[in-house]
C-alpha cells in the first residue's frame, strides 16, 4: 500500500485511508538528515527534520504539508523543487465562519484528487465510515514512574525530543497529560456520525478543523480554555511547554498560557539537537520546585 507522509494534526488520516492509501504521520528522527532544506539560522528545526526525512524516506508515495505555519508552508516549496509528489493543504486560520469550513472542505476535495493521482481510489461514504472506525486515534500514553504529576503542552516533538520525557521521569516526574501537538492537540474531535452518513467531508472538517483547538487558529482563545480544563482535570502539579526555536506561534502564546493555567509552567525551547544536556538543570530545578 502506498504511504502518504504528513506531520500536521489537521490532515485527516481517515481521508487517506478511505482512498486506500496508508497514512504515515512521521515523527521525525530529529537529528535532521541531509535533504532539500539546508541548515540555516531562522529555519524551524522540526520543519527541516520533517521535510528532509520525508523527502528521502523510501516507500513514500506522496507528502502532505499544510499552511498552518509559515515555515511548513514554505517547506513545501523545497519538496516540490525536488520534483517529489507533494500537496500543500490550505488549512484556514479562521474557523468560526461557514466560509472557513467550506474552504477546508474544498481542500479535502483537492486532496482527494491528489491521492487519486497517486493510485488512490475515489472513496464512497462506506469507505469513509470504515476509515473512521479503522483510524480511531487515541492520545499518546502517559509516561513515567515518578511521583510528581506533570502535563506537557506545546508543538510537536521528534524522536530525539523524547529523551526529555526520559529526563522528566529520571527527575521524579510522571506525565499525566500530553497536550502537545504530538498528543491531545493532534487528536481530532469525536466525529458526528450523523454527519458522516449525510456529509462525510463536512464531518471531517468539523472534527479536524472546527473543533480541534490549535495555536495557529484565529482567534485561539479556545486553546487556552481547553488547556486549563485538561490540566485541571489531570491534577498535574506543573506543565512543561515544548516549543521549537523560531516557532513564533507557540512562543508568543507562552505568557497567555502561563496566565490561563492553575499551576506553574516551564517553557522549554528545542533546537533540533539532543534536548537533554541544555535542559537538564532547568527541568531538575522545576521538579525540585514542584516537589
Amino acid at each position: 500500500m502506498s504511504r502518504i507522509a504528513y506531520a500536521s494534526p489537521y490532515v485527516p488520516a481517515e481521508w487517506i485511508v478511505a482512498h486506500g492509501l496508508e497514512p504515515y504521520r512521521i515523527q521525525p528522527e530529529g537529528a535532521a538528515p541531509r535533504g532539500p532544506v539546508p541548515p540555516s539560522a531562522g529555519i524551524c528545526p522540526y520543519m527541516r527534520s520533517f521535510v528532509n526525512q520525508s523527502a528521502t524516506e523510501p516507500h513514500v508515495a506522496g507528502i502532505i504539508l499544510t499552511t498552518v505555519c509559515d515555515q511548513m508552508r514554505r517547506g513545501y516549496e523545497f519538496i516540490t523543487d525536488r520534483g517529489l509528489p507533494s500537496f500543500c493543504f490550505n488549512v484556514p486560520a479562521t474557523w468560526r465562519s461557514e466560509s472557513a469550513v467550506q474552504l477546508y472542505v474544498s481542500e479535502l476535495e483537492r486532496l482527494s484528487r491528489f491521492l487519486v493521482s497517486l493510485g488512490g481510489r475515489q472513496p464512497d461514504t462506506n469507505a469513509i465510515r470504515d476509515a473512521i472506525h479503522e483510524c480511531s486515534p487515541s492520545p499518546s500514553t502517559v509516561a513515567g514512574g515518578g511521583q510528581i504529576p506533570l502535563a506537557l503542552t506545546g508543538g510537536p516533538r521528534t524522536k530525539l525530543d523524547e529523551r526529555l520525557i526520559d529526563l522528566i521521569e529520571e527527575t521524579g516526574g510522571h506525565i499525566v497529560l500530553d497536550a502537545t501537538e504530538s498528543g491531545l492537540l493532534g487528536v481530532p474531535a469525536v466525529f458526528n456520525m450523523k454527519h458522516v452518513d449525510t456529509d462525510p467531508m463536512r464531518a471531517l472538517a468539523e472534527a479536524y478543523h472546527s473543533r480541534l483547538p490549535g495555536v495557529s487558529r484565529r482567534p485561539n482563545d479556545d486553546l487556552h480554555t481547553f488547556l486549563a480544563a485538561q490540566v485541571t482535570a489531570s491534577q498535574a502539579s506543573g506543565v512543561i511547554l515544548l516549543r521549537y526555536l523560531w516557532c513564533d506561534l507557540w512562543h508568543a502564546e507562552v505568557p497567555r498560557i502561563r496566565k490561563a493555567l492553575p499551576v506553574p509552567l516551564l517553557d522549554i525551547d528545542l533546537d533540533g539537537e539532543d534536548p537533554v544536556p541544555r535542559n537538564r538543570t532547568r527541568i531538575q530545578a522545576f521538579m525540585e520546585g514542584l516537589g
Binding site: 499552511t67 508552508r73 484556514p92 472557513a100 484565529r218 508568543a252 497567555r256
Partner: peptide, 21 residues
C-alpha cells in the same frame, strides 16, 4: 500573526479575515 493574536488580550478586538496561500 502571533503578535496580532496578543492584541485581544490587551483589550483590542480584532476582525480576522482569511487570506489563503
Amino acid at each position: 500573526s502571533a503578535i496580532a493574536q496578543r492584541l485581544p488580550g490587551l483589550g483590542h478586538a480584532v476582525h480576522w479575515w482569511e487570506i489563503p496561500h
